[in-house]
Design a protein around this nucleic acid. Structure first.
Lengths: 332, 332
DNA sequence: TTGAAAGCGCTAACAG
DNA sequence: CTGTTAGCGCTTTCAA
C-alpha cells in the first residue's frame, strides 16, 4: 500500500516506536521530534493501515446489520437511521439481507463474526431457544429489533401488543363493531419468526374481548386478499354496520385498499381500515391510512446505542421499549 | 480470538505451513496428514482470521456503496440489488450515506479506502473535473450510477435523455399539447451533481422542439408545488386543452397529484402526469402513475459486475447503458 | 526521552 | 512431501 510508519521512521531517523508515539500521542516524547514526525506524516499523506491495527487490537469499527430486505420500506428506514447513528461514532455498517432464509441468516451471522464486526443488529427470521443459543455462541454483541428471540438477547422495539390494543379501541371509538384482524400466516409459520405479528394479534384479541359487542374475525395467510374480497362480497348488503380491517402492517392495508377499490368500495366510507408501521409511502396514498407509528428511527437509534453499550461491556436491559404513536388518517 | 493454525499445527505435530497447505488445498501434501489436519480443524471449529489474511494479501472482500440516502426508495432498491449480487460473490457491502453533503462524501470515500474496500459503487453529489480527479486519486475501482461524473470513471445507467424523449412523445400521442417539465433546481445547484435531471431535461427539450404545436414550460425548484398549483389555477378555465406534467422523478409526480387532489383535480382526467423511476410505491397509488422504469435492479447488478471486472483488472467500458421501459398507467 | 524486539495470524519463498 | 524463515503494518512491553 502506501506510506508506513517504517518509512516515516527512516526519514525522520528515529525508530518506529517513536513514530507510533508521535502519531498516537501516547507516551513521553520531545516536542521537536513529535512535530517533525507529524509534519512528515502529513507531507507523505500517511494513512494508518487499519487492517494491521485491527489485527493487532481486534477492533474493526464495523457493525453488521442483518434484515430481511430493504425493498421493504420499514427496513430501509431502519437501516438508514442505523447508518446515520453509527457514522456519528465513526463506525461502518455492513448491510446484509437474509431474505427470510434461515440458512442464509446463519451463514451471514457466522461470516460477520469471521469478518470481526464488533456488533450486530438484526431482525431475525429464525426463532426459538436453539437459535438463541446459536446467536449467543457467536460471542459478539447482538441487538434484536422487530422479531424478538428471547430474553438472552437484548431487544429494542415498541410495545406491539399495547399498540394493537389502542388501535382496536380507536377503531371501536369510530363506531365499528365488526373488526377483522389481517396478518400473514402465523401458526403454520415453519419456525419463522413472526413475533411482531403474534404480539399484534395478542393485542387485538385482548382488546376485542373487552368489548362484548364486537364481532371479530381473523384473516391470516398469504391469500388474505381473496378472503377479504369474499368477506366483503358476503357482507355488502348487510345492515349490521360497516366492517373495519386492522392490518398487521401497512402494506397489507394498502393491498386491501387497492383490491377493494377494484370493487368500488372506498376506505373510510364503505369499510374502515387501519395499518401498522407508518411507512413513508403513506404520505402519497389517498385516502390517508390510519396507522400506528412504530418509531422506526428511534428504535434504530436506540438499537445502535444499546449495541455500543454492549460493545463497551456495559450492562444493558433485556428490553428497551420505545413509545409508539397512533396516527389518525381518513380510513376509519 | 479462537483457534489458530498454530494450535492445529501443534496438535497435529506438523508445521504451520503444512496446516496452511491442507487448509488451502495448494501444494503437495500427503492425504493422511491433510485429512488429519482438516479433521482437527473441524473439531476445533477453526475459522481463519480474515483480518490477518487480508493484511497479508490486501483483499478484504468488502465493497463500499455510497448513496444519498435509502429512505429514498430508488436507492433502497438499488442497494438491495447490490447486496444480493455481491453476496453471490461472497462480498460484503458497506452502506454509506452522504446525505447530499459533499464533505461527507469525500470523507467517506477516504475512509472506505482506509478500510480497504476493494471497490466502490456510488451515486455522487459532487461533480466536475476536480471531483473526478479526487476519485481517481483514491486508487480504487469505482463505478458510478445515477449521476455521471466524467468519462474517467465507469458509469452504469439508462439513457436518460432518450427515455425522456420517449416520454414526451408518449404524452404527445395521448393528445396533450401543453407539457410542463418538473424537476429540482438545476442551474443554481451549487455544484451539486444533478446529471440525471439535466439529461432528462435535455431529452424533454429535444422532444418538444420536434413538435411545433407543443406549448412547453419548465418548472424547476423546490417550490415546484406552489408553481404547479398557481399554473393550474390560471388554466382551470382555459379551453386550450389539458396540461400534462412530466416529472423528473416519481416522487415529484406523487406530490403534485396529492396537491392537486386538494383542488379536486384528478390525474388522468383534469390533467395528465408522468413520472420517472418506477419506484415500488407506485403499486399502491391510485391512479397508477405512467412512468419510466429505469431498471434499477439491472443497473445495480451491472454495476457490481463492472466493479468486479475493474477489481480483476479487466478493461471496462466508460458507459454501460441498460434498457429502460415506459410503463403505461392511468394518469395520461 | 528513545529504541529493540516480540507478536497479532496468516502466507509464501526457499530449502530440504 | 514437509519445515524454516521472513514479513504484511502496527502495537506494546521492556530495557536503555
Amino acid at each position: 500500500m502506501g506510506v508506513t510508519t517504517k518509512d516515516i521512521a527512516q526519514i525522520c531517523k528515529v525508530s518506529r516506536t517513536t513514530v507510533n508515539r508521535a502519531l498516537s500521542g501516547t507516551g513521553r516524547i520531545s516536542e521537536e521530534t513529535k512535530e517533525l514526525i507529524l509534519r512528515t506524516a502529513k507531507e507523505l499523506d500517511y494513512h494508518p493501515d487499519i487492517l494491521a491495527t485491527s489485527l493487532k487490537n481486534g477492533k474493526t469499527q464495523n457493525l453488521g446489520v442483518l434484515v430481511f430486505d430493504i425493498r421493504n420500506q420499514y427496513f430501509a428506514q431502519m437501516v438508514n437511521a442505523i447508518e446515520l447513528e453509527a457514522k456519528k461514532k465513526s463506525y461502518f455498517v455492513s448491510i446484509n439481507l437474509h431474505e427470510k432464509n434461515k440458512d442464509t441468516e446463519k451463514e451471514i451471522l457466522e461470516k460477520l463474526v469471521d469478518y470481526r464486526v464488533e456488533g450486530i443488529i438484526m431482525s431475525p427470521v429464525s426463532k426459538g431457544k436453539n437459535f438463541a443459543k446459536f446467536v449467543n455462541k457467536l460471542g459478539k454483541p447482538v441487538v434484536i429489533i422487530g422479531n424478538n428471540v428471547d430474553e438472552s438477547i437484548p431487544f429494542v422495539g415498541i410495545d406491539e401488543a399495547t399498540a394493537a390494543i389502542e388501535a382496536v379501541n380507536h377503531i371501536y371509538s369510530k363506531g365499528y363493531r365488526k373488526i377483522v384482524f389481517v396478518c400473514p400466516p402465523l401458526s403454520d409459520a415453519k419456525n419463522e419468526n413472526v413475533f411482531t405479528h403474534e404480539q399484534r394479534k395478542k393485542g387485538f384479541e385482548a382488546a376485542v374481548k373487552k368489548h362484548k359487542d364486537i364481532e371479530q374475525d381473523i384473516i391470516s395467510g398469504w391469500d388474505y386478499l381473496d378472503k377479504v374480497i369474499a368477506l366483503m362480497k358476503n357482507r355488502s348488503n348487510e345492515e349490521g354496520g360497516k366492517t373495519a380491517f386492522f392490518c398487521s402492517g401497512d402494506i397489507y392495508a394498502l393491498e386491501i385498499m387497492k383490491a377493494l377499490r377494484g370493487m368500488h368500495l372506498k376506505a373510510g366510507e364503505d369499510f374502515g381500515i387501519m395499518g401498522f408501521d407508518n411507512i413513508d409511502v403513506l404520505d402519497y396514498v389517498i385516502p390517508r391510512l390510519t396507522t400506528i407509528d412504530n418509531a422506526v428511527d428511534m428504535v434504530a437509534t436506540e438499537a445502535v446505542n444499546v449495541l455500543f453499550d454492549l460493545i463497551n461491556g456495559k450492562e444493558v436491559k433485556d428490553k428497551t421499549i420505545v413509545p409508539h404513536l397512533l396516527i389518525e388518517g381518513e380510513t376509519l
